[in-house]
Design a protein around this nucleic acid. Structure first.
Lengths: 112, 112
DNA sequence: AAATATACATAAATTACTTATGCATTAGAG
DNA sequence: CTCTAATGCATAAGTAATTTATGTATATTT
């Protein structure tokens, strides 16, 4: 947290893409997965995560199933058909953003 | 311009990097340059640009020289020594961000 | 037994931005 | 030659994605 501002605006893309690839996940699991993949460089705060999950659900992009593990609640989220459409748009925007940044900044990034 | 949110947080990096490379530029010129390089996909609004230039100047990262072209004012900005240090940090953050996004959004393919 | 990790949640504060408005000069189109 | 668009600066109000702070409860590790 309190890292850089660049991650602003990418949270919904990350959540939807992750759920599209990995199938259903619960909130806490998403934070751990993202932290691990980013080598600890992107830590999703709970204050950002949960409102975003609720928003994406309200928009019909995610559905939720509540399950109990012992006495502990987990809310498993899955991507919907509309969510898949939306993630395609968001990915296009992200690719466009990265391309433009590379043109503007010429950062030393190895492209896939 | 109601485009996407991804550009949030990258304005200072873009301005400082551009000034570091191209030498001095004035505000309007920066907007045109960025619009051109991004094929019109990133349009810096004046309400974002001018306050940011003032902020970077206040932080000692830019200096300004006012010049008149006929009766029209131009404020030419140049990067300072501290500005160059800062842009190096910002570039590292940007590279890190892009790398992490590529990891998060382009999942590794399992090879046989 | 106490601290840390897991797992959810929301409210207030922050902040980078968009939108809107304003002023003045110069170039170009009709 | 007149009017619109482009050039060039500026600031204020509103928006929204976040951070920070706080809360509750269970499970695990030290």
């Amino acid at each position: 947290m309190a890292t850089n501002q660049l991650y602003k605006g990418s949270l919904s893309t990350i959540i939807l893409k992750l759920l599209g690839e990995k199938g259903r996940m619960y909130g806490y699991q998403i934070t751990q997965e993202v932290k691990a993949i980013s080598s600890g460089e992107y830590v999703i705060t709970e204050g950002a995560l949960y409102p975003m999950l609720h928003k994406l659900e309200a928009q019909g992009l995610l559905t939720v199933e509540i399950e109990m593990t012992g006495n502990r609640m987990r809310k498993y989220y899955s991507i919907t058909k509309n969510g898949k459409k939306e993630v395609a748009n968001l990915m296009t925007e992200m690719e466009s953003y990265i391309r433009n940044m590379q043109s503007l900044l010429n950062p030393k990034i190895e492209l896939a």
